[in-house]
C-alpha cells in the first residue's frame, strides 16, 4: 500500500536516502526547465515567457492525477499523505510577500538552490537573503507568533471545504490548467521576446 514509508516498508534513515534521490530528480527537472536563471523566471511576470506557469501547472496536474488515480484504484491511502495545516490569513500575507520577493529577488528558495549549483552569483546572494529572512522571522517570532498561528482552519483540502467530490475538483483543475496553457501560448505570441525584437527594429 502506498505511501510506502507510512506503511513501514522502510525506516526513516532509508527515507533520507530517498530524499536525496528525489531531490536529484527535482533539481534535474528544475534546471532542465530553465529555472536556474532569474531572467527566465522573472520573464513570467512580464508575459514574455510563461515557462514558470506551464511547468508548475503541468507538474501539479500530473501529480494530482497520479495521486487521484492511484487512490481510486486502491493502491494508495490518500489519508496518509501529509497535509499542511491551513492558516489562511498568514498564508495570504506570506504569499503576497513571496510574490513581491520573487519579482525583486528573481528566484524562489528551491530554484535558487539550482541556480547556485550552476554558478549564478545572484542566486548565492538571494540565498543569503533567504537565511537572513528566516533569521529575522525567528527572532521576531515571539512577537508574531499569535498572528502566525491565527485563522487556523485545520488540515483542510478543497473538496472538503467546498463540499464537492474530489474527482470534480480534479476535473476542474485540469480544465483550468488547460485553459491556462492556451492562454499562456497566446500571451507568449503576443508579448513574447521575439515580437519585442521585431518591434524594436521597426
Amino acid at each position: 500500500m502506498m505511501p510506502y514509508f507510512k506503511f513501514d516498508y522502510f525506516g526513516s534513515d532509508t527515507g533520507l536516502f530517498f530524499a536525496f534521490i528525489i531531490g536529484i530528480g527535482f533539481g534535474w527537472f528544475l534546471e532542465r526547465a530553465g529555472f536556474g536563471t532569474a531572467k527566465k523566471l522573472a520573464a513570467q511576470f512580464y508575459f514574455k515567457d510563461l515557462t514558470v506557469f506551464k511547468v508548475m501547472f503541468t507538474a501539479i496536474v500530473t501529480a494530482m492525477l497520479g495521486i487521484y488515480f492511484l487512490s481510486v484504484f486502491g493502491f494508495m491511502d490518500i489519508s496518509e499523505l501529509s497535509v499542511t495545516t491551513t492558516y489562511i490569513v498568514p498564508q495570504i500575507v506570506g504569499g503576497l510577500m513571496l510574490g513581491v520577493g520573487f519579482v525583486i529577488g528573481g528566484y524562489c528558495p528551491g530554484t535558487s538552490v539550482v541556480a547556485c549549483s550552476t554558478g549564478k552569483i545572484d542566486a548565492v546572494f538571494f540565498l543569503i537573503g533567504v537565511f537572513l529572512g528566516i533569521f529575522i522571522f525567528a527572532e521576531l517570532y515571539p512577537l508574531i507568533e499569535n498572528f502566525s498561528n491565527s485563522t487556523n482552519m485545520g488540515k483542510v483540502t478543497m473538496p472538503a471545504f467546498f463540499n464537492i467530490p474530489y474527482g470534480i475538483i480534479v476535473f476542474l483543475v485540469v480544465l483550468m490548467a488547460l485553459g491556462g496553457f492556451a492562454g499562456a501560448e497566446w500571451a507568449e505570441k503576443k508579448f513574447g521576446y521575439k515580437k519585442v525584437e521585431v518591434i524594436n527594429e521597426d
Partner: peptide, 15 residues
Amino acid sequence: LSGEYSAIFWVFVVS
C-alpha cells in the same frame, strides 16, 4: 543498509 548510518553512507560516501 537501513540503520543509523545508512543515510550518511549512501548519500555522502556512495553517491
